[in-house]
Write a protein that binds this DNA or RNA. Structure first.
Length: 566
DNA sequence: CCGCCACGT
DNA sequence: GTGGAACGTGGCGGA
């Protein structure tokens, strides 16, 4: 590698303008007027602030048939979308590769260099903006090593066919944002404020003292000392006062339900009403989330600042917040497409269990069918409480359930829960075998994989500590299921984006909520887009059972109605 | 900065 | 016999 001595300008500190050494191609990208490329039309760029100094050069570069190796491709894609550049260059992401090789590890450049190049890289050795050039100088060798690593674990396709194209889709979604009618939040906020202060007064009056209800410590003292309610459970720091505890002591004192309601309303007010107002952009009327592609252990996305993957839906009080999420910028409808029972369908596919396969192939109500199997009754004979029990079993199944966990979720005895579980495994022996085989494989290899070869390492699977080992075993069972579902929806997102573009439609994807995609669409396009999205999601990965997607549409995220006849 | 708690899938 | 559902993010209190 030839190194040129160049100047790096426009760093975080405008006073810094130091001489550093860079790989030749990088130096050219940053400084040279004519933008000559390396032998293979390849350049390396650290996505820190330095790339703002090279905007024009970068724009020009990205419009060429060339390859840019960077630490974070999504930032480059954002750069291109923000400037409406027609992107011709291929982009590679070291961090994305590193995430697939070892999720959970530190994805910073110095850490990656230490891990993959066995180089001692100390960020403190560079001054000011100099480190950005130094980081870039590590990229050629780092990328080479990571690309080889992906091939070695047979995850190159996962990178190239799913994660990298998804980065571009996510960049586009982040730039698009979602319209929020802030006026819808005002009355909800005022109502919450009134209810909260009224509850606060009633709670203090029942306790006959002033205390901070938001402090679990103070609340515990009031409930379990002052009011003399027998404590249910302890945490490391004191009395536990979570919802399960409060529900258990519901009858002991009339203050308890008020506290549950108070907690719920304060959550809505602070996190959603206040929180969303604070990040709302008044120029565009939209909210812009960050979709993080390299955080979770299983391959799911996460959403931050704000988190738009946990907007309330279960309880009506909070669900109303969804009225504020609306189509904007000339669009008329929001459209939501969600996978029905995707995790249980994935379980059916990877376990190959005959009864589970049959249930999904027949299009049966899966919880009803499970209840019929567990309780040994005909489908028509299943009672509502039996169905609820079976639903909890199916739910827990995916998490590597224990009798204790099932018992507490159903409010039944531990023995009864254990009976349900063993009845389940008698009727679904393929599922039992999958779980045993997966744990055994994890113990042998030290990792588990998804259908698309995403890996998760489980170093504690052989621990002699029961708690640690048990946790690793549940994780071994859950990760291939949750992770495969994540792979599938990611692939579907890439396909949906491709089809929308290919069909010349203006409708656009806005959000992903693990098994659901939210789009905004026009009145004209709604029907066509509903069909397109449903087909793309259902057909993207042919499993041994059908994937079923339900599509809803409406004037906001609260009022959605099923789109029929697709 | 960590623990608790509450929201989502 | 053990502790006991999987994956996340944000607000708050308190050290």
């Amino acid at each position: 590698m030839d190194y040129w001595e160049v100047q790096v300008k426009g760093t975080a500190d405008p006073e810094i303008d130091e001489e550093v050494f860079l790989p030749e191609e990088l130096a050219v990208l940053l400084e040279d007027e004519t933008l000559a490329l390396g032998d293979e039309g390849r350049a390396w760029l650290f996505s820190g602030e330095a790339f703002a100094t090279a905007e024009e050069k970068l724009e020009e570069f990205l419009s060429r048939e060339a390859t840019l190796v960077t630490d974070d491709a999504k930032k480059i894609y954002r750069f291109a979308y923000d400037r409406e550049i027609e992107l011709k260059a291929r982009v590679h992401s070291c961090q994305l590769a590193a995430y697939l090789l070892k999720p959970g590890s530190n994805m910073g450049i110095p850490a990656l260099a230490r891990a993959w190049l066995e180089k001692g890289v100390d960020p403190k050795q560079w001054q000011g903006g100099e480190f950005q050039a130094a980081y870039a100088s590590l990229l050629p060798e780092l990328w080479d090593r990571l690309a080889k690593g992906l091939a070695e674990i047979e995850a190159w396709d996962l990178y190239e066919k799913i994660e990298l194209p998804l980065s571009r889709v996510l960049a586009r979604m982040e730039r698009t944002g979602i319209a929020v009618d802030i006026r819808e939040l005002e009355p909800i906020g005022s109502e919450l404020e009134a209810k909260i202060s009224s509850l606060e007064r009633r709670i203090q009056s029942l306790a006959d003292c002033e205390f901070n209800i938001n402090s679990p410590k103070q609340l515990g003292e009031v409930l379990f000392e002052r009011l003399g309610i027998p404590p249910v459970r302890k945490t490391k720091t004191g009395y536990s006062t979570d919802a399960a505890v409060l529900e258990a002591i519901w009858e002991r004192h009339e203050i308890v339900p008020l506290i549950l309601e108070y907690r719920q309303l304060v959550k809505l007010q602070s996190t959603y009403i206040q929180g969303l107002k604070e990040v709302w952009n008044e120029e565009t009327g939209r909210i812009y989330t960050n979709f993080n592609q390299m955080v979770t252990a299983t391959g799911r996305l996460s959403s931050t600042e704000p988190n738009l993957q946990n907007i309330p839906v279960r309880l009506e009080e909070g669900r109303r917040i969804r009225r504020a999420f609306v189509p904007g910028g000339g669009y008329q409808r929001l459209l939501a497409a969600d996978y029905s029972q995707i995790e249980l369908r994935v379980l059916a596919h990877i376990s190959g269990d005959a009864a589970l396969l049959e249930a999904f192939r027949r299009g049966e109500d899966i919880h009803r069918r499970t209840a019929a199997e567990i309780f040994g009754v005909a489908l028509e004979e299943v009672s509502e409480s039996q169905r609820q029990g079976a639903k909890a079993v199916n739910f827990g199944l995916v998490y590597g359930q224990t009798d204790f966990g099932l018992a507490s979720s159903l409010g039944i005895g531990r023995q009864e829960a254990a009976d349900y579980i063993s009845a389940y495994f008698r009727r679904y022996p393929g599922v039992k075998k999958y779980m045993e085989d997966t744990v055994a494989k994890a113990r042998k290899d030290g990792f588990v994989t998804t259908l698309f070869n995403r890996r998760r390492y489980l170093p504690e699977i052989g621990s002699r500590n029961f708690q640690r080992r048990s946790f690793a075993e549940r994780t071994a069972i859950n990760t291939p299921i949750q992770g495969t579902a994540a792979d599938i929806i990611k692939l579907a997102m890439v396909e949906v984006e491709k089809r929308l573009e290919g069909e010349g439609l203006v409708s656009r994807m806005l959000l992903q909520v693990h098994d659901e995609l939210v789009l905004e669409t026009t009145a004209d396009e709604q029907k066509r887009v509903a069909k397109l999205v449903k087909a793309a999601m259902e057909e993207i990965v042919p499993l041994a059972v059908p994937l079923v997607v339900e599509v809803k549409a409406g004037p906001n995220w609260y009022n959605l109605e099923t789109v029929r006849d697709l």
